[in-house]
Write a protein that binds this DNA or RNA. Structure first.
Length: 275
DNA sequence: CCCGGAACCTGAAGGC
DNA sequence: TGCCTTCAGGTTCCGG
């Protein structure tokens, strides 16, 4: 599931190949991926446009174009972008959209579950304008986090995954950040004291940086643009490790549900404060 | 405004 | 061996 570190890795991997390239063709095999404009209009508007840069905002991948427009993609849960050489003949499984470049290379938007989304728009804020702060930007301080959580009554795990509060954290890294700061996922967000908020702030930043350093986590469908997997999941302490032992204390890691999402935690290291 | 849950999808995995 | 059920989860939408 591409979260911030996975999308950042895709951006970094693709940058040297895509910046300055012109899109010469597009093939849509699942047109519902295209949100705006209509899938019928997209080819005519996109073909001939040149990619000026690649950026990431939250879990969105943004391609500013020379025309001033933006091509934006969201991988949702199962999406990947795979770059194939001009000479490649092999069929790409689950390919939903194919962008052909002026080099002859083809960029495949792979999306088994068909949840991914593509936009071509003038104003990128229309798509990413409501997102919360970027957790790896200097402006994201413990004080920022404190203000975000204050008076909130939802479980801290649910708040961490809310893109309008903080951008880019998903299920896996929320679990890892909570383990790093020894907080129980059901803890009420607004109940955290200053010390806990500071620990959580550090935890968020450290698990996201570690994720990027290991090129993202391939727990299921995520692949880097060259087809290889990330390694970040090998260093996870609790995420997707239900039934295994906590690397800190050896207690069996438990799985529960928060907002209908599988949530992993160590019941010994992450104790729920009594009400 | 805030919170929780369903819906969108389909491959993979587990049960019988 | 094979059918059936369940699980996975980012975002949006809707109800309380």
């Amino acid at each position: 599931m591409p979260e911030l570190p996975e999308v950042e890795t895709i951006k970094n991997d693709l940058s040297p190949y895509l910046i300055g390239r012109t899109i010469t063709d597009i093939t849509l095999t699942w047109s519902k991926s295209v949100i705006k404009p209509s899938s019928l209009e997209l080819p005519g508007r996109l073909i001939g446009q040149t990619i000026k840069d690649i950026q990431r905002r939250g879990k969105y991948l943004i391609f500013p174009l020379e025309s001033g427009q933006y091509l934006i993609m969201h991988m949702k849960m199962s999406g990947s972008l795979i770059l194939k050489a001009a000479s490649s003949q092999e069929e790409v499984r689950f390919s939903r959209t194919i962008f052909t470049l002026d080099t002859g290379e083809r960029l495949h938007f792979i999306d088994p579950r068909k949840f991914g989304m593509i936009w071509l728009i003038e104003d990128k804020e229309e798509v990413v304008g409501k997102l919360g702060p970027e957790p790896l930007e200097p402006a994201f301080t413990p004080d920022t986090l404190s203000k975000i959580l204050s008076n909130r009554k939802a479980p801290i795990k649910a708040l961490l995954c809310d893109q309008e509060l903080i951008a880019g954290i998903g299920n896996m890294y929320a679990d890892e950040a909570l383990f790093a700061s020894r907080l129980h996922p059901y803890e009420i967000g607004g109940n955290l004291d200053d010390k806990e908020v500071t620990l959580l702030h550090q935890g968020i930043i450290s698990v996201l940086r570690a994720g990027i350093a290991h090129y993202g986590a391939s727990t299921s469908d995520y692949y880097r643009p060259d087809g290889t997997k990330g390694m970040a999941h090998m260093f996870f302490n609790v995420a997707h490790r239900g039934g295994k032992s906590c690397p800190v204390c050896g207690t069996t890691i438990q799985r529960t549900m928060v907002r209908n999402r599988g949530t992993y935690f160590c019941p010994e290291c992450q104790k729920l404060r009594q009400p």
